[in-house]
């Protein structure tokens, strides 16, 4: 499959193995027990599962935050290890889960973005970096005045927009989003999902989307892998897997999704003008 942007083969991650001081072997915790998946260019791929299933560990391996015990990751035809050169690093970026802890608290938004741009030689000068930072903020729907403010000044939704601006700053080919809306208020989630969808289209991004929320996956993704206890138990197009799950676990997951009763309200033709 030559058109695959990312291929993951037999990826294993064990935590806490090795030996004790007395030479006794410790039993490692197997967070990933050899998973395989691949993502085509331009595709939105989801990994769903419950906490502890290993989905975040998989995401961290892909972005290079977690060493794998075994297995290989191939990106654009070349192996992608834990230690990466600048171009490899730039090509895979991440949107984090918690907008309240994912922005450097003591740095201004513009300062952090400009640092990222300059360290990675996207922009040569301070001025160019600042200008580019302003453009990035505009792309995610934030005013340029945000440049000189610290994260504290923003709401959760705004912070997540800034987090997305940071993730796309290095013009990645693959964007990994680890539960990007689960820490946000319900009324904000839709706008962040819409933003991700728009950016994916406009920038031609490939997305790896980690979530426990099937409704969100249904909205945003093309294919889905269901993980349980460090293994992928079911994989396929979202429309098939979520409509006709084969595995018992997937069925339970679907049954547990809390669905709302249908709204019995006519949609508004056009919102009336604001006073």
């Amino acid at each position: 499959m030559a058109d695959q942007l990312l291929e993951v083969k037999d990826l294993c991650v064990h935590f806490g193995g090795g030996r004790t001081l007395l030479g006794k072997k410790k039993v490692p915790f197997e967070a990933l027990k050899g998973i395989d998946f691949s993502i085509a260019a331009g595709e939105a791929f989801a990994i769903v599962g419950e906490s502890g299933a290993g989905k975040s560990t998989a995401a961290r391996c892909v972005v290079g935050l977690q060493k794998s015990t075994r297995g290989e990751i191939t990106f654009q035809g070349a192996p992608l290890g834990f230690h990466r050169d600048r171009d490899q690093r730039r090509a895979v970026q991440m949107v984090f889960q918690d907008p309240y802890s994912s922005l450097s608290p003591r740095m201004t938004v513009g300062g952090a973005l400009a640092e990222l741009l300059r360290v990675n030689k996207v922009c040569g000068t301070k001025e160019a970096a600042r200008e580019r930072a302003g453009e990035l903020l505009e792309m995610v729907g934030m005013p340029p005045s945000a440049l000189d403010q610290r994260p504290r000044a923003f709401s959760g939704g705004q912070r997540q927009r800034i987090g997305i601006a940071r993730a796309i700053a290095l013009e990645p080919a693959l964007l990994v989003a680890d539960e990007p809306v689960s820490a946000l208020d319900v009324s904000i989630q839709a706008s962040i999902l819409g933003l991700l969808k728009r950016l994916q289209r406009e920038l031609g991004l490939t997305m790896l989307f980690i979530s426990h929320d099937l409704a969100v996956v249904r909205q945003l993704c093309d294919r889905v892998a269901v993980m349980c206890d460090g293994e992928i138990i079911e994989m396929g197009p979202v429309s098939e897997v979520l409509a006709a799950p084969r595995e018992e676990f997937t069925k339970n997951l679907l049954a547990a999704a809390t669905d709302l009763p249908d709204l019995e309200m006519e949609p508004l033709a056009a919102p009336p003008p604001k006073p």
Binding site: R89, S102, E115, R166, L170
Partner: peptide
């Protein structure tokens, strides 16, 4: 996550420690 984000962004370790973590 802000430290993880800095690492994913390829910020050198000394810079992460000095500019992001230390303050």
């Amino acid at each position: 996550e802000y430290i993880l984000a800095a690492r994913t962004g390829g910020i050198p370790v000394w810079r992460i420690l000095l500019r992001h973590m230390l303050p």
